[in-house]
Amino acid sequence: MAQTALKLKGSPPVSDWKKWLGVTPFFLFAILFLVLPSLRLVMGSFTNSEGQFTFANLLQLFQEQFILDAYWLSIRISAATAIGGGIFGFLLAYSVTVGGLPKPLRSALITFSGVASNFAGVPLAFSFIATLGRTGFVTALIKNVFGINLYQQTEFDLYSFWGLSLTYMYFQFPLMVLIMAPALDGLKREWREAAENLGASTTQYWLRVALPVLLPSILGSMILLFGNAFGAYATAYALTGGRLGIITIQIGAQIRGDVLHNPGLGYAMAMGMVIIMAISLIGYSWLQKRSERWLR
């Protein structure tokens, strides 16, 4: 009887299937565009051109020099842009949070970062070609104003390792700003005051308290930046046209290319990428948890 009375008093019970209604589109989307392609990728990497099961594709990953070079190049570009973008983004985030710059500047930078961190692919490549390409606006300006031809008198080349890294930096540092600004906001004023009160200088506070507290966030963010650059394809392809054989371009060539067409090998290379990205994300997630525990 008591149970009946309780049921009558409470809100009407929601059918189990209704609880799942809101997330159904997401799961459908994930199944169609994440789970199924992933399964296809795994199966494809174990399949040869005749459709038979094989380990040859995976073995080739460690045997073919151009594949190892492609991974290594991608890792180097991703690491360079993660470190560069990370440092640059951290300094910017610091300036507009604890650095004491005017508040309107913070809003402007955060808005810019929100837009710039998503500005990648063909438009970004073309905007860099239009500014820093051989006949780009800035290249011409430097030549006309300072008399320096970037491409003839310096080592600069937009279509090289550093050129591509510079282009990636455009979306890397804003992403760092977006992640680090809340972490820097999480530094409590009382920590600094407590450190000062106990005799610490500003440098000692940063070295012994603030940076160690922020370190998981900084490293985690850099891992995210690494993953962000590692998975980039369209920007590099549009900018260099395949001159730089990063792993995503090599995968594209294997799956869609006319000359190097070997989808099985392409899938195996993509699986290698997935493993590297997964390791990155696990690292990011572990560091983020540690950071949240300290900054809450």
């Binding site: 920590w191 407590a194 106990l198 005799g199 308290v209 300290w294």
Partner: peptide, 28 residues
């Protein structure tokens, strides 16, 4: 503040989260 030799206890504790209890006490 670092030159005054004055100890302060804050409302929000202000313990350094990256240090243990012993490290916090020994910080100064």
């Amino acid at each position: 503040p670092s030159q005054r030799n004055v100890g302060m206890v804050f409302q929000s504790y202000a313990l350094f989260p990256n240090m243990t209890v012993a490290q916090n006490i020994g910080f100064g």
